[in-house]
């Protein structure tokens, strides 16, 4: 059924001879990715660096990253899932419909060649961006690419990794997992964690108007989320913890200015490959850290009488 087959970025640096970026534009969005991890570095088993590697870019348009690529494959918008599914069939030498394949924007010959390159790589990697994970099909597009990577291991070594952005989103995901068992979309209202993306994920909660307050930490949903979600944040008490004025802080009922993590507050950031990096602040800040603010809010709330009786029914098991 697939899964997730990944590695730390140093493995890519030292071993990868085939690098595929899919639905992402690292040249502009992750400018150090080529030079530090993927394309340029001379690695232990790819001693000539760029010369020992092939880069393929799959995207709906020729972005700045295409210049760095050896091969650019232009997929039609919202045809990624079909394209990946065809590749899954081709690596197993299963039949596909030539005419329908052409609707992906790529010919069967191009895709067959791509499938061969994937299988022949010594160590291949897919890096995928929001062009894949946030377009029609969303989580199933990511699942498709992760499954393709897993299946390629029947022929060679292959891994896949999301190109995550926006500060420490990986760190949030990692810590949610060890405290609740789930990476995101967690509901703690019943006193224990429950998980259901689509039901409990932030954007869905806001669009449906399921919450009666919003606490925003290290994010600016007011700049990125659809209008109905923003409207809900305006409607209910919204509290923002942020060092700067943001789109969200402008619509918030309360904005608490905090120290900048990594510059004036210590902590840990998890890199996109889940390697923890210590943050050693060079400066001091007159503002409290996010952690301190949350701790103080928590202490104040803890003094209030509990909302729940001491023994609470759980959702029965089936």
């Amino acid at each position: 059924m697939g899964g997730k087959v990944s590695c730390t970025l140093g493995e890519v640096k030292n071993r990868a001879d085939l690098i595929v970026y899919w639905g992402g534009n690292p040249a502009e969005c992750h400018p150090r990715h080529f030079t530090k991890y993927s394309l340029m570095p001379k690695g232990r088993f790819v001693p000539n660096g760029r010369k020992d590697r092939t880069m393929i870019l799959v995207d709906i348009r020729e972005t700045a990253s295409a210049k760095a690529a050896d091969i650019f494959l232009q997929v039609r918008p919202a045809k990624d899932f079909e394209m990946i599914t065809v590749l899954r069939a081709l690596i197993k030498e299963q039949p596909v419909d030539t005419k329908l394949v052409a609707e992906t924007g790529l010919t069967l010959e191009e895709l067959t060649d791509f499938a061969q390159r994937l299988k022949k790589a010594k160590f291949g990697v897919f890096f995928f961006g929001m062009g894949l994970s946030m377009t029609r099909g969303k989580h199933m597009n990511s699942a498709a690419l992760l499954t393709l990577a897993a299946e390629l291991n029947a022929f060679t070594k292959f891994v896949a990794m999301p190109m995550r952005g926006h500060g420490n989103v990986t760190g949030g995901d990692v810590i949610m997992r060890w405290t609740t068992g789930y990476p995101f979309g967690v509901n703690l209202a019943r006193g224990y964690p429950r998980f259901n993306p689509g039901e409990y994920s932030t954007i869905d909660l806001l669009i449906r108007g399921d919450t009666d307050a919003v606490l925003v930490l290290g994010a600016d949903p007011g700049a990125t989320m659809p209008q109905p979600a923003i409207d809900h944040m305006v409607r209910v008490p919204t509290i923002v913890l942020d060092p700067k004025v943001t789109h969200t802080s402008k619509i918030a009922r309360v904005h608490i200015t905090t120290a900048v993590t990594g510059i004036s507050a210590p902590g840990t950031a998890y890199r996109m490959d889940e390697i923890p990096l210590p943050l050693k602040p060079p400066l001091k800040s007159p503002y409290p850290t996010d952690e301190e603010v949350i701790r103080r809010i928590y202490q104040a709330v803890a003094k209030k009488p509990p909302l729940m009786p001491p023994v609470r029914p759980k959702v029965p098991r089936v």
Binding site: G3, K4, V174, R177, W178, T179, T180, G181, Y182, P183, L188, R190, G191, Y192, P193, R194, F195, E274, P306, P310, R312, K314, R317, V318
Partner: peptide, 27 residues
């Protein structure tokens, strides 16, 4: 922690730990 993310179906049917004044919630 990688494994935790892979088995939400196991968490769903496992014994939940409901948070109390002494103890944190979890699964």
């Amino acid at each position: 922690n990688f494994a935790r993310a892979m088995i939400p179906e196991d968490h769903l049917h496992s014994e939940p730990f409901v948070r109390t004044a002494i103890r944190r919630g979890g699964i």
